[in-house]
């Protein structure tokens, strides 16, 4: 490892001394340990027995490792985790697909087509972008109620399928598409939908990938809105996790195991997409 460090140091950043780098790494390691500690504690706790959890003061390493908590959760007929995974997946993926489609189409129209009221519409979209969700939460709830979509997964997906931020982002990226390219295609006789699908979308792909990941992540982790508009079999994972934790307030080892089961898989998936996520965040600053 040290040779790699020294090599690359010499090659790329000659300004830093080897010892300086080591000390920085030594400084970063405790920081990283602190950052990881809650996760580690969660996993370790999920492997403890109930009796050990209730010990005082708390232990760090499990005295007696057990998978029983996981077995218990996975075999709990009252906690069909598969169903909630499916719900979360359906909601997050459909909302994301819808968002991507509406955002790229709307953004492209706003950027590359002229129509009456375009500026006003764009202004509206900007205004909704800065509007906190909590402001429109109440009316959105009432709208779902009137549309009969309350408690249904579609009730979660449809309002999430259009995002002012996404539209704004796609408009900015569409602006960068050369109009000449579009006109050339038109002269070649390409239809407008064809142009959108074959020219605009490919050009927007990097932005779409980033927006898609960010939006999937935020829908997957969403809590407040699903809490309000779902019940029973349509609940998503974060809602189930709080329910389970309330239900088993005294059994922290079970709650921690549930938290591991619910959050770890998606963390792993996201880790693989990290590159695009990072790109998306640096590109947009979006939270």
């Amino acid at each position: 490892m040290s040779t790699i460090i020294s090599n690359s140091t010499r090659l790329k950043t000659p300004k830093y001394k080897w010892s300086q780098q080591t000390s920085i790494v030594l400084l970063l390691i405790p920081c990283a340990i602190i950052a990881m500690l809650p996760f580690v504690w969660m996993i370790l706790s999920s492997l403890k027995t109930g009796a050990e959890i209730r010990q005082l003061p708390a232990t760090f390493w499990p005295q007696e490792m057990t998978w029983g908590n996981y077995q218990r959760i996975l075999s709990d007929p009252r906690l069909p985790l598969g169903l909630y995974y499916k719900n979360s997946f359906i909601v997050a993926s459909l909302s994301t697909c819808l968002t991507l489609f509406t955002s790229s189409l709307f953004g492209y129209l706003l950027a590359k087509h002229s129509f009456r009221g375009r500026q006003v519409l764009f202004g509206f979209i900007l205004a909704t972008m800065i509007l906190p969700f909590q402001v429109t939460m109440i009316p959105s709830y009432l709208i779902l109620l009137k549309l009969g979509l309350l408690y249904k997964l579609w009730g979660l997906i449809l309002p999430a399928g259009i995002s002012a931020f996404g539209i704004f982002l796609m408009r900015q990226f569409s602006l960068a598409i050369p109009t000449d390219l579009l006109d050339a295609a038109r002269i070649d006789g390409a239809g407008e939908w064809h142009i959108f699908g074959r020219i605009v979308i490919p050009l927007l792909t990097p932005a779409i990938a980033s927006l898609g990941l960010l939006s999937f992540m935020s829908h997957w982790n969403a809590y407040l809105w699903p809490l309000i508009v779902l019940k029973d079999e349509t609940r998503t994972l974060p809602i189930i996790l709080t329910w389970y934790s309330n239900q088993h307030g005294s059994r922290m080892e079970l709650t921690m195991a549930a938290a591991v089961l619910i959050s770890i898989p998606i963390l792993i998936v996201f880790l693989f997409c990290q590159k695009w996520l990072v790109k998306g965040i640096t590109l947009t600053g979006l939270r």
């Binding site: 109620l145 309350l150 019940k231 329910w243």
Partner: peptide, 20 residues
Amino acid sequence: ESFSYDSYLQSLQTALPSNN
């Protein structure tokens, strides 16, 4: 169909008047 205690009250408050 079951609701968690907290959301139950709130669901009732909105569902009943709208015949839902």
